[in-house]
Design a protein around this nucleic acid. Structure first.
Lengths: 170, 170
DNA sequence: GTCATTAACTTGACACGGCAAGTAATAAGG
DNA sequence: CCTTATTACTTGCCGTGTCAAGTTAATGAC
């Protein structure tokens, strides 16, 4: 995104094709967060548990199922990744002994990913640190009102992208 | 990040180690934005200009220099990427004729990346569409007050990450 | 002046994710 | 039933990014 460095747009301007100063400032800040926050969270998880954020997400989603089991396609959707990516990640997690694959008895096409006991520990163990990091970087910095605003702003942007309901109910 | 699906935390709770409901909702929304917004912006640029967001960033930073020239290290910092990554990207952009490398006459170690005329067009051409997409997905969805809140929230989070001043003045 | 250190990249080997093609099992039509 | 279509994955190939090591040039110490 180009943000003009020079004097630029007069404060009152609202040509539809450009961003005014307030918008430009907000955009710069948001773009910074978009780059740095995922990197920071990934780094914390990598440091404390030797695992990527996506891998953690996969383990976490399995850990929330009563039987610690999910079909690949559904797990991919829950973790917000492609099926290919999930397949590769489950390969790795399987090799490290944190999940295993099982054939689905009710449908021979589908594969079930099951969280092992070691995998359960791998998700429970770093969770407090991960939550603490999210709290430290975000919520400790914001007022109550800003937390609510953040929720509303996020919802609106997600709605505009048509990505609101990524997580199907069941 | 684990967000409990069941009834969970009582509304007034503020155990330091967990997120209360408002925070959890805000976090879910933010996490969604963190995943979907970069993907959406990348997709738009890829569709309209056949270029990644990082490549665009590189061209855009060069386009803002008076002589369309930057040293590799500084360009990497401005585009928020590693030097290795930049080196590879400049390879590609060079092959496509949008930038070229020149030896720095004042320091034999450093390399100058220079934007060509074709590269200038490649950055000017998709800019309106890119800005329009940012406006459509974000600023058209928000009130004036929310734009200001977004700016403030972003600044606070960046400060907590120690990543506020990514762009050195000169 | 010479040698060690530092700086500024570049490059090779590897990890990761995407796309398209392949495989196997179920569902749908006639 | 038997054929065709669809679903649910998996895999080969490729592009991209990272880390560590290599290269070349400038700087500092003596």
């Amino acid at each position: 995104m180009i943000v003009r460095r020079d004097a630029g747009t007069p404060a009152g301007s609202d040509e539809p094709g450009w961003l005014d100063q307030e918008e430009a400032h907000a955009w710069v800040a948001l773009a910074g967060v978009l780059v740095a926050l995922p990197a920071a969270l990934d780094a914390q998880l990598q440091r404390d548990a030797g695992i990527s954020h996506f891998e953690y997400q996969v383990l976490a989603m399995l850990s929330m199922e009563p039987d610690r089991t999910l079909r690949m396609t559904r797990l991919a959707a829950l973790a917000s990744g492609s099926l290919t990516r999930l397949s590769r990640v489950v390969d790795r997690l399987d090799k490290r002994g944190w999940v295993c694959r099982q054939p689905d008895p009710t449908d021979g096409r589908s594969t079930l990913a099951v969280l092992t006991d070691a995998g359960w520990e791998k998700v429970v163990d770093p969770a407090p640190g991960h939550v603490a990091e999210v709290r430290r970087l975000i919520f400790d910095q914001l007022t109550r009102g800003q937390v609510r605003q953040l929720h509303d702003i996020g919802k609106r942007v997600l709605r505009a992208m048509g990505t609101e309901g990524l997580v199907p109910p069941t």
